[in-house]
Nucleic acid binder design. Structure first.
Lengths: 144, 144
DNA sequence: TTAGATGCAAATAGTTTGCATTTGT
DNA sequence: ACAAATGCAAACTATTTGCATCTAA
């Protein structure tokens, strides 16, 4: 039995079985920093364990999204989503609107806003995603 | 000739032709508050002008995304993105992780962070999207 | 006038489903 | 033991492409 990551424990604690398919998908996501498309995930999973079915990968991605462990987001203008882990429930990046380069950053200082929103709308917030759209250094130079 | 919305002007100023297909898509988005899936957009466009082709709608959605006029985002766990207008370049909402209800809010107080990021990473920011994931009032009650 | 954009229909790719079988607890 | 989850392959759906034609500037 593998030792469990925190995220695996969250799965288990939410009442889901820790199956091979689920642990493999989590493993792939946790050993890759940054964003992954579903195709990349499918490919990586197949490399580790060819027995894991396509459908289970998608089912797991849905599940992880519902548990706010990952979040799908659009990065490169294609229809395929990129999945990002939401460590500590949040994630932040800057996407270049020209070349789609992604810059990730940590600080967001949103906890004050978070508390205010919880009071105003009577919700219990578990995470967030903050995306900025910008021109990166390189793309500022090469004039449009 | 219709009178042009600000967003239409942004298209024109960026060097794109103001074609019927593009103006129709913009019109649909601007006369609908909140989020729209691509299917909803396709349907609404077809109602207004059945001559506009499916492909042009998708091409326009891509274009508007690249210009940071709209932003695709995942709301309901399906693979189909929901497009939101980014008025003044930004948009904020809270999505219930249980029932997918969306609460939109205005204030985000991110301009300080925005300026700081521009300096730190040497980028020129044109907009942002901020999503919170939460349990809404209704879903807090109906226990897991 | 003419580069850019379109509409169409066919091709592609990504995702979901139904179901018999397997597996975690 | 047994509900939950899986793998498979087929079905679906959303999106993209190629190209001849059209049109905004």
């Amino acid at each position: 039995m593998k030792d469990l990551s925190n995220r695996a424990k969250r799965l288990r604690d939410a009442g889901y079985k820790l199956t091979n398919a689920r642990l493999t998908v989590l493993d792939v996501l946790e050993h890759h920093s940054g964003h992954m498309t579903s195709s990349e995930i499918l490919e990586a999973v197949a490399t580790i364990d060819p027995n894991v079915g396509r459908a289970s990968v998608f089912r797991t991605l849905d599940l992880l999204t519902r548990l706010a462990i990952i979040r799908p987001t659009y990065i490169d203008g294609s229809m395929t989503p990129n999945y990002v882990l939401l460590p500590d429930g949040h994630h932040h990046h800057i996407v270049c609107i020209r070349c789609n380069r992604v810059i990730e950053f940590d600080d967001c200082g949103l906890s004050a806003l978070e508390h205010q929103l919880e009071k105003t709308y009577d919700v219990v917030i578990s995470g967030h995603l903050l995306e900025f759209y910008a021109l990166c250094v390189a793309c500022q130079d090469s004039a449009q």
